[in-house]
Design a protein around this nucleic acid. Structure first.
Lengths: 219, 219
DNA sequence: TTACTGTCAGGTGTTAACAGTTGATACTAC
DNA sequence: GTAGTATCAACTGTTAACACCTGACAGTAA
């Protein structure tokens, strides 16, 4: 196939279910669907212009991610987070990311890893004066990269399952509080510890970072 | 309501979807549906005597748990684990259970916790001469209890999401290998460390246990 | 041959309709 | 009034059918 037809590739077809999952996830983590709100299937399927069957598949996925809680008789509602739950979420997050940095420290040749991490931090720097949303995206991207680089698919999957809850925590606390966790130097610390290959330094950098982050959010 | 009617409670009605999830999970973790096997929706819905819509909801859930992998055009197949993936799963498991024991060590009054853990270990002892399946159940029950006792719902949920993968690892390796990980004394070590309240001892007991466990499985 | 094109079977994506359950409200008998 | 009951609206659980896409295979013309 000639290169001239390259512009025709990639027709961008996602299933309605996937689109619904994205759409609902955004609605929840942005607060458009407020915590505690009861979700009525018929209502949502009307809004999203999809059938209930398709919607229900999307809802199962979000429930599994912990964004929805199931009440009596299959009624779903948007999960409500209190201070303890936010701390709990960040404790699990710290455990997972600790494993990530420990794994990276053990790797013999870390130059490629460091390069990726540095560019993630650079991106955070680049958007430091942009909107809060963009800064949060850059921050999460850094932490997701941490997990991706380990090559441990299970680790990445577990972290990704937590991502929605993390976003809810941020939304719940308010973006102004969350942005206090975007300090670039704290992230450089983590990268530096990995570069040195010092597992204890890396772990404590991560755990401290998460402790502070959770503290900032619930304060 | 008088106590006499107590026997009428709990009519045992689980939705078809939940039953399908259980049934399929068992089929996968027992090897009845062998790794790599292609799942055909119409075939499965016929077997289980449920409609495709209901089945598809169940499949979404299992996919999210990591028991199924999605190929091209929405085709699902049973996840195949190699040695690296098993080690990866147990690394994540170790990270989560480490958090569990650290959390428990920090608790001021641990007598109730120790009591629960001891009875879980006792149960392992009680079934030590029973079938392999029962011993595995008792083992997993101990580790699940570890997570439950922390009161951290997110931790428990993350661990539970991993449970299917853990069972697959055991199945994949063969029950004879898996049973080498059921040594009761190793579990008492963990309980003892928690009772003492020594976080480092508890953590290393867990991490060592998981290292050995993964090693036994892939050997 | 070889390249192109119908055609068909096997699947998944999606939907609309039916069935059953529950909680609230209105109604009746005492 | 109040306990008991019929009725109804609002949902979720479940299903069967339709719509599409894709890969394989056969037919056909150069």
């Amino acid at each position: 196939m000639p290169a001239a037809t390259a512009s025709l590739l990639g027709l961008e077809k996602k299933s309605l279910r996937e689109q619904a999952v994205s759409s609902l996830r955004t609605a929840i983590t942005s607060g458009a669907l407020e915590p505690g709100r009861h979700l009525v299937e018929t209502e949502l399927s009307d809004m999203l212009q999809i059938s209930r069957g398709t919607l229900r598949e999307a809802l199962r996925q979000l429930a599994q991610e912990g964004l929805l809680t199931s009440g009596t008789r299959g009624r779903l509602s948007v999960r409500h987070l209190d201070a303890k739950e936010i701390r709990d979420i960040f404790a699990v997050r710290a455990a997972l990311e600790s494993l990530a940095v420990l794994t990276l420290c053990e790797r013999p040749n870390r130059t490629a890893v460091i390069k990726s991490l540095r560019s993630a931090v650079d991106r955070m720097n680049a958007v430091a004066n942009e909107s809060l949303e963009e800064r949060i995206e850059a921050d999460l991207e850094f932490h997701r990269t941490l997990c991706t680089l380990t090559g441990n698919q299970t680790l990445l999957h577990s972290w990704a399952s937590l991502e929605g809850s993390i976003r809810m925590s941020i939304m719940f606390a308010g973006l102004e509080k969350a942005v206090r966790n975007m300090r670039v130097d704290r992230h450089y610390e983590i990268v530096a510890a990995i570069e040195t290959g010092d597992p204890e330094a890396a772990r404590s950098a991560v755990v401290d970072h998460m402790d502070v982050a959770a503290g900032n959010l619930v304060a």
